[in-house]
Amino acid sequence: MNEPLTIALWVVFPYLCLLLFVGGHVWRYRYDNFGWTSRSSQLHESKLLRWASPLFHFGILVVIAGHVIGLGIPNTWTGALGISADVYHTVAVTSGWIAGTATVVGLAMLIYRRRTTGAVFYETTPMDKFMYVVLGTVIALGMWSLMATTFDWNNHYDYREGVSIWFRGLFFLDLRPELMTLAPLNMQLHALAGFAIFALWPFTRLVHVFSAPVWYIFRPYVVYRSRKDQLGSRATKRGWDRVGTRR
């Protein structure tokens, strides 16, 4: 049953992507802290961003939380808590629709804004464009999977008994690639694209996610620092995007 292609797609590829994800972040953090930023474009455009960015971000954060629950928590656990599969399904699908729609609308607005605002487009790097293509694909495939689950196009396929077990297995070295061969096409593609964006992640602006400044809540307002660990007289690091004059 475990043909080479199955192994390649559902074992080798995910691990490669995770390796790039982890290694890439370590590398980038060490060598390109200067490039580690959200690269906000609000200076150029606010009106669309004011709606698009919160829609997209709150949407995607709920979506990510949903994935953590759906993929991370075995259905036996939720069952033990007395949450029936039906209830779980309803809650998951409803919140999935709300968050998914917000994400899609937000993303569409973001991309529209990026393309039509001259200054924002001017500042868009090739990597940004590539990232948007992959991110857009992941989200589109995710919405397809959501529809398939909602309208039952998948013949009662329960991803929590397939995809989720395969996914968790990757982290516990309990490799179950055959489970993915049984998954419907929409989920297969969504999973592959999802891992692809993991591989891309450290090399895009998406690194900003890992700097989410939650500890701001707890720190004193004004930060004092001694000159000793100043940065002004330090050598330039590799991977540093030089700021020169254009043309």
């Binding site: 200067f34 959200s38 609000q42 400044p213 720190r219 004004v222 930060v223 620092r225």
Partner: peptide
């Protein structure tokens, strides 16, 4: 400095000069 979520803006203890640490700024603007 107080509004910087990353804590990248700091006041130097020696001479009070306020600086942005370019390596810690994450562009939250």
């Amino acid at each position: 400095a107080a509004s910087c979520p990353s804590g990248a803006i700091y006041k130097r203890a020696e001479d009070g000069i306020v600086l942005v640490d370019q390596d810690k700024c994450r562009g939250w603007r």
